[in-house]
Design a protein around this nucleic acid. Sequence first.
RNA 1: GGGCCUGUGGUGUAGCCUGGAUAUCACCGGGGCCUCCGGAGCCUCAGACCCGAGUUCGAAUCUCGGCAGGCCCGCCA
Length: 571
Amino acid sequence: MESRQRFECEVDSAVRAALKKIGSPDLKFIKEVSDMADLAVPCFSFSKELRSDPKAIAERLAANIAPSGLISSVSALNGYLNFMMDDTALIGETLKRIIAEGDAYGSMPENGIKINVEHTSTNPTGPIHVGRARNPIIGDTLARSLKRCGYDVQTEYYVNDVGKQVVILTWGVNNVPKGSVTEEDRDKTDHRLVAYYREANKRMEEDSEVKEHIAEMLRRFEDGDEEVIRSVRKTAEAMLEGLKETLADINVELDNYTWESDFIMDGSAKDVVDRLKGSKYAGQTEDGAWYVDLKDFGVQGKNTKFTFTRSDGTTLYTTRDLAYHLDKFKRADRAVDVLGEDQKLGSKQLCSALEILGSKKVPEAMFYSFVSLPEGKMSTRKGVVVYLDDLIDEAVSRAVNEIRSRRSDLSEEEMLNIARKIGIGAIRYNIVRVHPEKQFVFKWDEALNFDGNSGPYIQYVHARACSMLSKAGKYDCCTDPGMFTDEYERALIKSLSKFGRVIKEAGEERRVHVLPAYGHEVAVAFNQFYAMVPVLASDENRNSRLTLVECTRTVLRNVLDCLGIDCPEEM
RNA sequence: GGGCCUGUGGUGUAGCCUGGAUAUCACCGGGGCCUCCGGAGCCUCAGACCCGAGUUCGAAUCUCGGCAGGCCCGCCA
């Protein structure tokens, strides 16, 4: 058992013994962590039973507990019984583990559970804009956290290559002459192709012949015309290449790409239709469209009907999504979908329909609110949009300027290489640091913040630690708790000891925003230690302090890795 | 009309699920700190729980009612 847990047990029995001594052995109490003590027991609830003031009770209890074991002190304050922990054991234990486990520190052993994390899945009709950028960043961070929690994680992008939008795009790419649109000034397929998508939309509105042509393509698509389906898929694939480049730039790589059209081609969407038709919740409108009524499943609103075929019998997006999730559960024990908040109802309907289909498993959804601009909602069509690629460029160029102003010794190539890591670090940190369900207004100066609560702040601490260690050269590792007597050393080690709990919260509870906060906490603790405690200049404490620097570097690397942020050794 | 989410210093945010002491962190503003391991740093001061009821010894946290913003209620994807 780790010392923290042992401490809690000791406090538990000490309080019980004290309550017994004052004659009320059956009183229930709670323990809480606070700023004032390592563990505190509020005494207010004892007041009624003991007919006494909580302050007096706390003092009486404190008088009946003597420090022993891991309890280094007991005191009463404001009606609380406060316990301080002797952290000697914690210090030794933490440092030894970090040294022994290295990159794996904070990770749990493999648990054999296969978990599928679906994220991003943006429509392949244009470049990723920052309104959608939360999805890959949250999804990738979650996947990395779950890996450290011991899961066998597969990440997956569901490519929507079915429906009107991609058909319009395909029509544009195949029919709009190359010279007649101005392609965006960026050599990437997504930026090149989006011009044809815009032009196709425009022509469709202005020209009824074009509109009819696109409608015809859509009809053929839905009839299962392989030529059309293949052609659409080809365009979607080309577009996806560009999206993948952007994702790779922010350190996001997905394991699988699953195509929506596959569920039409292989007949599994049809199977879903047949099985739903047989359920007792199924019904048909006058026009012949099929639905299941979900009012018994807690779905609310004026319409509880969940339609799964058109009147002509063809399948809908949601029908294919059902087939897709049934397929997912053949491949994984659990599934997490990272979705925009507009999918909340759809996700609930999906789960209900899966239950009707007899699926024992249902995906766990994680929602995020959209990112908007100060001037309002983003819209590719209106040109009110900031592309993720532009944000990346801006972040990198600002980082280059920062580096140039303080490092004249580096080559242009070295500067650019480091700047990419800093710029991406700033972007990913800034986006993942806020609670996903909170509305997010994109502001350039916040996204490009390199100070204080930022990715580069943590990267800077890491670089500092690297610099110290390389200056130090060889040293003897020392984890003897007796050597760490300074308050800044102890505070830093305490922070390092929390990493395992943070990973668990980020993964198991899907609270990924605790990771940047934790990284920042460790970085602050290090900077304070750094400012107050000499390391290289110290004689008797040199080895122990270098060990602490090394351990901090390891933990920072692990946190940053979990956040998908690179850690350059210099910057 | 109904449902879900959000509201915390000037700004942005944590805490809310699981009620507890002096409400977190950062930016901005005021004042300090490099003969010393990297000043993208450190120290310090100032400043906030949307409104109203209720539950409770105790509410930013739970309940109800308002107000404000976002999202949803398609034979779209």
